[in-house]
Amino acid sequence: MVDTAVLVHGAWHSPWCRHEVVAELERQGIRSVLVDLPSCRAAVPEARADMHADAAEIRRTPDAHDDVVLVAHSYAGIPATEAAAGHPAVRHLVCVAAYIADEGRPCSATPSPTRAPTSWTRRRTSTSTPPPGR
């Protein structure tokens, strides 16, 4: 059983945005840890803080735990995927409205988590009646 949820915020947030989630997890008996991404720190982003520095920060967090579910939001999907790869404590990776980059493709080629590629959203061209509930 997973003993800890590691929560990673997106690019335009910081750990504070997950405090309500932490409180709810605690009510349910689930320990949680918030990761503060170096490239997004509020005061002054660290020099040379990039996706690789964020992945390293995320990867260090599960080191102190046995069984972790890693939860990434938005931008954090990319460094969290890198951080989770092969980590012995990470049992699950949950990406919430997150970017997922294909291996070998630049991040700029990754579709937005809020806007699916055109091929995913093609309109029906048939004049038939749509299925119930549509």
Results as ranks from 00 to 15, higher is better:
12 W>H: 07
22 V>K: 03
125 T>F: 02
11 A>G: 15
37 L>F: 03
61 T>P: 02
85 A>Y: 13
128 S>F: 14
63 D>M: 09
106 P>K: 08
91 R>F: 13
91 R>W: 04
11 A>Y: 05
125 T>L: 14
121 T>P: 10
127 T>P: 14
81 T>K: 04
100 I>W: 05
32 S>R: 04
22 V>D: 08
32 S>K: 06
7 L>A: 03
14 S>T: 12
47 A>S: 12
112 S>H: 13
25 L>P: 08
42 A>Y: 08
21 V>T: 15
54 D>H: 00
32 S>H: 08
113 P>V: 11
101 A>T: 14
91 R>T: 04
101 A>K: 11
54 D>F: 04
110 T>L: 03
55 A>E: 02
84 A>N: 10
10 G>A: 11
25 L>T: 12
90 V>C: 01
97 A>M: 09
127 T>H: 15
70 L>T: 03
128 S>G: 15
58 I>F: 11
84 A>V: 03
119 S>Y: 12
71 V>E: 10
117 P>K: 05
38 P>F: 04
53 A>C: 00
60 R>I: 07
134 R>L: 14
47 A>K: 07
82 E>D: 02
80 A>R: 00
99 Y>E: 00
120 W>P: 10
96 V>G: 10
132 P>W: 04
6 V>Q: 00
33 V>D: 01
133 G>H: 14
9 H>K: 06
59 R>L: 00
28 Q>Y: 06
12 W>V: 12
109 A>R: 07
39 S>Q: 01
28 Q>M: 13
53 A>Y: 03
29 G>N: 13
52 H>M: 11
26 E>F: 08
120 W>I: 10
78 I>C: 04
7 L>F: 11
130 P>M: 03
96 V>D: 03
106 P>F: 02
13 H>L: 06
96 V>S: 01
61 T>K: 00
32 S>Q: 05
